[in-house]
């Protein structure tokens, strides 16, 4: 199953074609294709072991697909990794930071890595927005789980990425932090970023995402707006996202597999 966007929109965001990843004999992801245009938020959902992490790692350039292509802002991630990654930010669910760099030094480092010329102006408001100003000289070991997550978010957003890949972005955040994070995702999308958001919190996906990609067993089960997914499957009429998810990835889907 594939979907497509007009070329102009696709070049501004994320375009995945025939993504397949094998680990030995195990097929983690099989022939996955989708596009995320500028301003779109795509919710990537699937049960444990469905291939979400492999997909996110492939999108962020951590691992190489066995076959298929990934374009970030029009750049082939395999052939032109530097410009592609320049436009990309990956915010993992479990952020790991450099043990011996302070909060401020992390941001300085990221700014140099991504060539952010006006970092001196950008860093203070970003720290203030994420309530990290008081902790700017602290090392990661001196931060709480939520603060480490906020620092990872700050590192991801510092260079104004055109493509944002988020894995369980609310993990570890307090209610205030969750609200701000959601607002940030929406704001980034409005500013033209293409966002891929993976989460088991289906309410969050329903709230923020313009389209949804449900994967199971490494394959696309459904993709599109919720209304479109229901329209293609009349038996799902009247169900919420949670019930749709379970219907497409539950016992029936297992039997089909």
């Amino acid at each position: 199953m594939t979907d497509s966007l007009p070329p102009a929109a696709a070049s501004a965001g994320i375009e995945v074609r025939g993504l397949t990843k094998l680990y030995g004999d195990l097929t983690a992801v099989s022939n996955l294709s989708f596009t995320v245009g500028a301003g779109e938020v795509l919710g990537l959902v699937g049960p444990n072991g469905a291939g979400k992490t492999t997909t996110l790692r492939s999108l962020s350039g951590i691992i190489r697909p066995t076959s298929g292509t990934i374009h970030i802002a029009g750049h082939d991630l395999a052939a032109q990794p530097v410009p592609a990654k320049s436009a990309l930010a990956f915010i993992p669910d479990e952020p790991h930071l450099f043990e011996y760099l302070s909060v401020d030094e992390h941001l300085q480092f990221i700014a140099r890595l991504y060539g952010v010329a006006d970092a001196a102006q950008r860093i203070p408001p970003l720290l203030a927005e994420l309530e990290l100003t008081e902790k700017r000289d602290a090392l990661p070991t001196e931060l709480s789980r939520g603060m480490r997550q906020k620092l990872a978010i700050a590192c991801g957003l510092l260079h104004d990425p055109k493509a944002l890949v988020l894995d369980e972005p609310l993990t570890g955040l307090d209610p205030g932090g969750m609200r701000r994070m959601k607002a940030t995702i929406v704001a980034r999308a409005r500013e033209g970023a293409a966002v891929v958001l993976s989460s088991h919190l289906l309410q969050l996906v329903e709230e923020l995402c313009t389209r949804i990609l449900i994967i199971y067993g490494g394959r696309t089960v459904a993709i599109g707006k919720i209304d479109d997914i229901i329209a293609d499957r009349p038996q799902l009429a009247g169900l919420g996202l949670e019930d749709i998810f379970l219907a497409l990835t539950g016992d029936g889907a297992r039997a089909a597999q």
Binding site: G61, P83, F90, P95, F98, L113, Y114, A152
Partner: peptide, 8 residues
């Protein structure tokens, strides 16, 4: 997480 995803 920070270098493999960076433009390097």
């Amino acid at each position: 997480q920070l270098l493999f995803t960076a433009p390097l």
